[in-house]
Design a protein around this nucleic acid. Sequence first.
DNA 1: CGTATGGTTGATACCCGTCAACCGGTGTGG
DNA 2: CCACACCGGTTGACGGGTATCAACCATACG
Lengths: 258, 258
Amino acid sequence: MNRPPSPISLAPGAPANAKPSCANCAARRLCLPSHVPLEDYGVFERMVQRRYQLLRGEHLYQMNEPVHDRLYVLRSGHSKTYHLDSDGQQRVTGFQMSGEFLGLDAIGLRQQRGAALALTDCEVCEISHRRLQQAADQSVPVGAWLRTLLSKELSRQQNATQLLRGGRAEQKFAIFLLRLSWCFAERGGMPDSFHLPMTRQEIGDYLGLTAATISRLLLQLKRAACVDACGRDIVVLDHAGLTAFAHGAAAPAQRQRA
Amino acid sequence: MNRPPSPISLAPGAPANAKPSCANCAARRLCLPSHVPLEDYGVFERMVQRRYQLLRGEHLYQMNEPVHDRLYVLRSGHSKTYHLDSDGQQRVTGFQMSGEFLGLDAIGLRQQRGAALALTDCEVCEISHRRLQQAADQSVPVGAWLRTLLSKELSRQQNATQLLRGGRAEQKFAIFLLRLSWCFAERGGMPDSFHLPMTRQEIGDYLGLTAATISRLLLQLKRAACVDACGRDIVVLDHAGLTAFAHGAAAPAQRQRA
DNA sequence: CGTATGGTTGATACCCGTCAACCGGTGTGG
DNA sequence: CCACACCGGTTGACGGGTATCAACCATACG
């Protein structure tokens, strides 16, 4: 874990030693509105207080940190957010990848924020909450963009909720894999071949299952020739079959609840 | 179910035949920013296209309705939102009561909206999406208010997600009751005595359980003298005991994951 | 009075949590 | 260099929590 952090990831075509900015960011397509021309990136650029790198295992922010006035965007890498419940158990609330925002819920200042941890080496943009609000107040397009951002995040969260309500463990896990596949594809990776940034335990915490169950589910999918897996390397062999699992097609007698 | 709809609920002190408005709304404390003086309610008033009443069993909106440009606030009554999954099974995504917004997620236009159904007779304010956006664009305070609203909704949704990840059925149900109690109290009702607007089946759908299980859980809580229940009338006898259930205190051997 | 809906309760099956042992890889210290 | 601990992952045995299915009752409504 002591390898030096990789350099800030730049958009293809940018000189390797360029100063990192929104304009040359490889993830800008994911976190900034697509219709804004490059020369208008100044508004967003000014929100960013600083950019820096995190090593695997470092925290973006800790639980109950006094500074609720920052949010973060992942330029590259993967992270997880989690809470500690009353018994000290970790409960994973989500996984994030490049272009995604962390801390949007803190805008309402209503709920104590959890913690965020880098699952791989990460590059992050730290955004000043205050400057973001100011920009939204002063610029109509920025305000609209922020509203869209919040609303999209709300939809994402609703989707996550749906995943948990879903009945059987295989369904949840299959849906989880499909979404992950889609997320990797959205970022230019192979949709059917990717590397999990998180442990089985973390997947289980996220889905309301256990590491042992995740392991068994993966075995089940391998036996059905839907996926191949070696450690954290996943290959989706049969996308349709996996989708069938996600819809609960593999029910022996009858589906649990749909 | 054929009783005439009750009149639009007015804030205490308002004449009974007053034209309904934000200024005399009994729920204004819940849906409007508290620091805005009554005489500045015009901005909000103008967003409301119309107000009307719904009978129990009527829809606020249906699945995949072409009009995604409206949102709603409940002046009074209770509603549920739900989706139909691939097998035609209803999945309840939430319950709403007076002062709560429905359709905020549609601002992002990212996900097909589900359906919303009145569980009791309701009075609703229909808000024009377009006018809301315009108001947010033109007025800095309205913009900030809308952002706060979205962020709070995000927090609510995250809480709902947490509820589902939680381990055992009794915990989920106990938390559900406690939240409900809190919501009723927030609206001026007795915190320890309320009437459920939804069926056991709907509670089960919402919590990822079945109606039979809900029934048994209620029996369990009654035996523990935590609550008394007659039909949908609930009396919380032992708030601390119920909280203990919510934290998983009633674990025979060991808590599942908390 | 007949029907439909919601609620309760019992018997049974089974999914999945729990506990445990084991293995491979990695980092650490002797 | 090897021994050791530790972590993540796999696999098995076992038990318990819930779903499932069913019958039955109460209530509301035609």
